[in-house]
Each structure stands twice: as structure tokens, then as C-alpha cells.
Write a protein that binds this DNA or RNA. Sequence first.
DNA 1: TTTTGAGTTGTTCGA
DNA 2: GTCGAACAACTCAAA
Length: 484
Amino acid sequence: MTSAFGAPTLVWFRQDLRLSDNPALRAAAERGAPIVPLYLLDEETPGDWRPGGASRWWLHHALERLGENLAGKGLRLLLRRGAATQAIPSLVGELGAERVVWNRCYEPWAIRRDREIEARLKQANIAVESFAGNVLHEPWTVETGAGKPYSVYTPFWRAIKDRPVEAPLKAPGEMQAGPQAAGERLEDWGLLPRSPDWAGGLRETWTPGEAGARGRLGAFLQHRVDRYGRDRDRPDMDGTSGLSPHLHWGEITARQVWHATQRHLADTGGSAEDAWSFLNELGWRDFAQHLLYHWPSLPDETWKPQFRDFPWREDARAYRAWCRGQTGYPIVDAGMRQLYAIGWMHNRVRMIVGSFLVKDLMIHWREGERWFWDTLVDADAASNASQWQWVAGCGADAAPYFRIFNPVTQGEKFDPSGAYVRKWVPEIAQLPDRFLHKPWEAPAQVLQRAGVELGVTYPRPLVDHKEARRAALAAFEGVKKGAA
DNA sequence: TTTTGAGTTGTTCGA
DNA sequence: GTCGAACAACTCAAA
């Protein structure tokens, strides 16, 4: 089965669905041996952390694009399904491959899996090479003066911000194809939603794939990065990069984004402050990977032990109202509906809805984490877990427990004209600005003129924020005493 | 070892 | 309307 050019190399694609700046692919291409590119739908990933609905939609399209891009270089993407620890070694045998390469992932289940596969392959005398994954700096290369991992962001950032970032690699040219093996058809994986097809908003919003990622980065650098510091907090404006899902799936790398931003700054003399506040967000992304690598229980367990006894409430009705954007707090509902419609929510609003779930409703942060996992196209174990723990106040580098977002104040401050709420909560769009973020305070006449009937066309507030805040503070007080 | 300064994203209250 | 202080104490990171 081996070609005249020798035994093939298996290039295993995972969260690196791109050709450019792909160290594993690059290394395989440079060896000159024939290449078999593979994507494996891994059935060994723990059930809670298999791609959710929105992620599956993204993955489908990302694989289509990757397949086309590889075809352009003479390769055919092989699709398989199965338990990776079995499937990879057995495919290697089937192909007569003598080498397997991949780019690293940092989720605990991925690390376990990769170690096991590496051990099996090496036992069979197969060469295995792994390369840096999609981060600026790998998690173990950043440590405190005492040789320990960081658990506070600011010193972590100080430690990396001036460190050189590896220059991105070019995509390989034409490559030598390895032997054909029987693969599956993407359509048969059922990654796309049917009956109902809820992906309309996703299709209108996103362009999965390497070209889509590059396009987004280009537009961001051209139009938005120079105002990033101001606009990034405004859900009513198009002020963020929108790169998160592309970064998660590795259609673009943090290294590419880092260097492109630096180049933009050097070439255009744009605002350094704004550019650096964007680069700082890449720092946060690395920090989340760093935390997950060093504290692998982060997605499942409350990081600060004293919070394990926090009196979380079971309230299926309130949880459902939150998920569906029916809490009666317009900014919260707008965010949750945006999420459901397009698979993404503005970062500022993520904090507001998170604080509301955890502190106003006192529902466990893991419930929020789970919903986000299923509905976000950028669902990423590290970022998702660290942000939920942050907002709940129980994580590494947590928000102080008394930092409880007021959904009315936040709405008025960051969506001052109400454009965001009006877009996503159209049934109250006719309300005047001064009542838009607090419809329950509007006089009956104003409500009537706007065609709003509270409790009928739009819900009354699920809880009274002032009261809920008091209750949350009291509960946090209890956790503190419990620890003492 | 001890000390010191500091810590993403907020709110409320009272002057 | 605007401003500063209080909210709590703890732990991290570095000197």
C-alpha cells in the first residue's frame, strides 16, 4: 500500500482546521513523504464535553472548507468516526503509515487520549510528533518566579506581553497524497440540525473556514481595532473582532492574530492603546488554557473549595426562562436570544447574563456553562469554564463576591440608545428609551402606547434585583463563615 | 522568610 | 448629576 515515495505520514486534524501556520502539516510536508490528512469524530470525548449543537454546525462547515483547501493542494481529507485510542492506531496499520503528527490540545481529556495514543504507536515503532497548539505560549512555558503556574491574570500578562511570539508558518504548497482509505461522508455525521433547522441565524452571521477567519481579521484591523478600547464594551455596536469561533477551531491562530495586529500597528501608526487592549484579550485566552492545563478539574469543579457548599438553588422554571430569554430583564433577554439565534453573545452581555444566573437566580454556574457549551459556536472548554467560575466568584482570579451586575444599570450604560435590546427583544421596541431597560417602571399609559402588556406580551421580572442581590450577598456571607 | 503592593469587566450610598 | 468611599478579607507574586 505504500507508494514509491515511502510510507505515508498521517496528519491528524483536531482543533487546527487550517493549512497556514499549521506546524504539524508543515512538518509533514517538509519531510516529503506522502500525506494522509484525517479528521476523526472522536467518540471517546467525555459526554459532557463533546461538541454541542452550535459547535457541530460550525464543525460541519469548517470540515467542508478544510477538505476543499486540502484538495487544492492535492490531498483528500479522510473522515472517520470512532474511539480515537483505537481508531488512530488501527488506521495507521491500515495505511502502512510510519509517522503520525498533530498539533496539541490542552483539554485534560485530549491530553490523556493523546498520551495513550502516543504510547501505543511508539510501541508499534511508529514515529509520533506533536507540535504547539493554538496559543501564544504553551501553558507550561509560563511560570512564576517560584516555578509555579499563575493563578492571577495581571502577573501572567506581565510575564508574556513582551515575550516574542513564534512567527506564523506559511501554508505548504502542493503535497504528495498517500494511499486512499475508505472514509465516511460528512453528510452522514448529522452535524447539521434538521427538523427543525435552527441554523438560519448562524448561516447569516458566520463564515466558517480559514478564508472566513482571515476575512474577519482583515476587516477588524481595518475598521475596528483602532477604536477597540471604547467600542468593545458596546453590544449595540460592531466593535469586537468576532474571531472567537475561528480561534477555537484553529482556522486562524493566536500567533497569526498577534503578528497581524502588531504589523497593523507598526504600518498604520494606529492607536497603540487600543491595539494592546485587543492583544490583552489574546492574553486572556492563553490564561484560560493555562488554568485548564494546570487545574484540569476547572470545567467540573468549583475552584475555590469553600464555594462547594454554596446554597445553589434548583429552579428548573427560572433556568428555562433564562435560557429562552424570558427573564423580564431586557438586557438579559436580549443576550440570551442573541445567543440562541446566532450562536454567539457579546462579551459584555455574557457577564451580565452570567451574573444574573449565578447571583440573582442563585443557579449553579455549571448550568450556565452547560447551556453555553451547547449554544455557542465558540464553545471552548478553557474559556467557558474560567469565565463562568470568574463570574460566579469561585474561580482562580475571581470577581469579588460583592460584584453583582445590575441589569438595568448595565443596560443603560452599554446599550444607551437601546438598539441592542430593540433588535433582540422586538416586542418592547416601541417603549421610550427611559423605560426600555426597566419596562415594569413604565406607567400603564406608556406601556399601552407601546403595545406592551407585562406578563402577557413580555414577562414581568423573574426576580426583584434589589431583593435578589441582598439574598446573594447573604449567601456569600454564609460561605465565608462556613470556611472559617 | 517576611513584607509589600496589588488584584478585568461593579454597585450603592452619602456628601 | 457627580464624586469618592465602602464593600472584605485574602492570596498571590515578587522583592
